[in-house]
Design a protein around this nucleic acid. Structure first.
Lengths: 197, 197
DNA sequence: GAGACAATAGACAGACCTGTCTGTTACTGT
DNA sequence: ACAGTAACAGACAGGTCTGTCTATTGTCTC
């Protein structure tokens, strides 16, 4: 016991733990090729870790998928809240979300929404479906709050439309290999916002 | 030879051919559970057909997936062109597309875009990805043409936004189990259309 | 130095998948 | 009546997948 660092996170200056290397490998391979296509063996090989370590740390592949998506979810939330803090008006905050989307979609190796993709590959009871639902609820609540702050009469209705643009931009950037969909979504969001205020 | 009906389609009054029963089973099972989850054995059992008949008719599972998606694609095109013929103005035609979407999303067993879902489960060289790209190009061209008819200055830009709403509504209806997303998309489309004309 | 502990490599079981192949049955046109 | 054809049932091969288990190595604390 004593003050030994927990094995689930890296020691302050040491090499990353097996758990973290597994998460990094999962993040890379699952996103690039899909949670179904990528098998356990490729994950552990890429992480340089024994199979028993994976099952010791996560218990099953499904739980590894959950941890992979949860980490993405936290990252996305952080990125959005950080960006929102840089703007004052609710209008600018809403529009800046689409700027983030554009930067995400321009990154090399972009393959669309990790949550949607993992859900589409899974059975309805899988962890991916749960995490996806959580992420969607968070995004919708975010837009609803911002739109309400902007003084829109019926915030739910406009927020739902902004979510449509958000989802649509995500899909279009991926399937059409065209990050400009985010800018189109931003322009549409501006029109809808102005029409509602 | 002579005037024998081709084995690929049913005789005028006879029972459906093995090929058609396979397509019907594929349409049902692939859409409901995913092209990866559903194996060959379940398809042929559901169709009441021998395995050799499947490989004789389609050659591989991937080609069965292609045929399944191509059929869906034709059905969707037909449904939209039929609906468009019932309206006069380009504006009404555009908006009616979202009415169709709402009816599709309200049907029991709706599970989102068959093309996207199959693509997300497949490797980039799979038939699903090709058919998906074709379907997207068709939809985009449809909107572009209608918007041009409506006299919009830059039809491509508005058409891209309508595609965003189309994709977004498809995703939202599925993931949030809420067909009203189509109505929200229709309302947003009306605002964008009016702002552009 | 000794024991505890975490991680290692890798074999293994059991299930599932695609695709091939053999042999049989039923129908259809001449 | 008979040849040709389509479909049938089902075994089989060869591969992949998840998850378990054994046995070994290295490291850290007392």
């Amino acid at each position: 016991m004593s003050t030994t660092a927990a094995p689930t996170s890296s020691a302050s200056a040491g090499a990353p733990s097996a758990r973290e290397r597994l998460l990094a490998a999962a993040d890379e391979l699952f996103y690039a090729e899909g949670v179904h296509t990528v098998g356990i063996d490729r994950i552990i090989e890429h992480a340089g870790v024994a199979k028993a370590s994976l099952y010791n740390a996560f218990g099953s592949k499904d739980e590894l998928v959950r941890a992979y998506l949860e980490r993405r979810r936290e990252r996305r939330k952080q990125r959005i809240t950080d960006e929102l803090a840089r703007h004052r008006s609710p209008r600018a905050k809403v529009l800046s979300v689409f700027d983030i989307l554009g930067r995400i979609g321009s990154a090399p190796g972009y393959r669309g929404c990790a949550f949607y993709n993992a859900s589409a590959e899974s059975t309805p009871d899988a962890a991916a479906v749960q995490v996806n639902a959580e992420q969607r609820a968070w995004t919708r609540a975010l837009f609803t709050g911002l739109v309400r702050e902007a003084g829109v009469r019926r915030p739910d209705a406009l927020a739902a439309q902004l979510v449509l643009l958000y989802d649509g931009a995500t899909a279009s950037m991926y399937l059409d290999h065209d990050p400009s969909a985010a800018a189109a979504a931003k322009a549409a969001a501006a029109v809808l916002l102005d029409a509602a205020t």
